[in-house]
């Protein structure tokens, strides 16, 4: 993966020498740099709490554990185990993300001890009834979007790049474009605005409580997704991050999915 990204960077840098960088080139360069800075994490596990809130203020909670494995030359693999609500306890979700094409996904249903392959084709479906779509929580591979640098802007106390992204799979994504605010120092996203297929502003994601792990990898501990069209919000709290725990491919196959508890 590193070699591949480096060669991508090299390719990007070559024309820069020759001519002025276009907005598209600068957008991609920013995305590549952000990806490069997160390279080499190996694996990590974390716990995720979701609080779903509707426009009447009613709440529902979801709790899950997530394990992620970085792959050479391919997208990340992840295993998500649901702990609450109690009626879905033990349900587990295995995903092999790919840079190009649909991700491979399997769901484990504990009542029947059944592993079911599911289609990841329709990316806009709601994840666990939340305002996060599957495509929002999936591994954000560079190749899944095209980019355009818009402008520099201050965001809070930081100087940010404002970059627009466009899904490559225009047919099955719920979005036409996304605008991200990313700080220039550490390349961390602080805000993302999502625009639906009609081009209207659908959702805004705010990320905060960043912590750095292994002196390198930044992870937001709080994410708030607000849907402007239906008035619902989802708060996502991450905790218990552990990096390089020794997970391997054997922890991300259908047998591991069946064993997940």
């Amino acid at each position: 993966m590193k070699i591949f990204v480096l060669s991508l960077v090299a390719l990007l840098l070559l024309p820069v020498v020759a001519m002025a960088e276009t907005a598209e080139q600068k957008g991609l360069a920013i995305a590549v740099e952000a990806d490069l800075r997160d390279n080499g994490f190996g694996d990590y596990s974390s716990t995720m709490s979701m609080v779903l809130r509707n426009k009447h203020g009613q709440e529902s909670h979801r709790e899950m554990r997530v394990r992620t494995l970085e792959m050479d030359g391919d997208g990340d693999r992840s295993l998500t185990i649901f702990d609450t609500p109690r009626d879905v306890k033990g349900t587990a979700f295995l995903s092999f993300s790919h840079k190009i094409g649909d991700d491979d996904q399997w769901l484990y249903l504990p009542a029947l001890k059944r592993v079911k392959r599911i289609s990841s084709h329709n990316k806009s479906g709601s994840f666990m009834g939340s305002e996060f779509a599957y495509e929002d929580i999936a591994s954000q591979e560079i190749e899944k979007y095209t980019y355009k640098y818009l402008r520099d802007e201050t965001c809070g106390d930081l100087d940010c790049f404002v970059v627009e992204r466009y899904p490559v799979d225009t047919k099955n994504s719920g979005y036409t474009r996304m605008v991200s605010w990313m700080d220039k120092g550490e390349y961390r996203p602080w805000k993302v605005e999502y625009f639906d297929r009609k081009g209207s502003h659908l959702k805004t994601l705010l990320l905060s409580d960043y912590y750095q792990y292994l002196d390198t990898y930044w992870r937001a501990h709080t994410m708030v997704m607000e849907n402007h069209q239906n008035g619902k919000t989802t708060h996502l709290y991450m905790r218990d991050f552990e990096f390089q725990t020794g997970l391997s491919e054997a922890d991300f196959n259908k047998n591991a999915l069946k064993r997940a508890k």
């Binding site: 649909d102 491979d104 079911k116 392959r117 599911i118 289609s119 084709h121 329709n122």
Partner: peptide, 9 residues
Amino acid sequence: LQYVLGGWL
């Protein structure tokens, strides 16, 4: 056997 073809299973 199960085969994924786009959105179809």
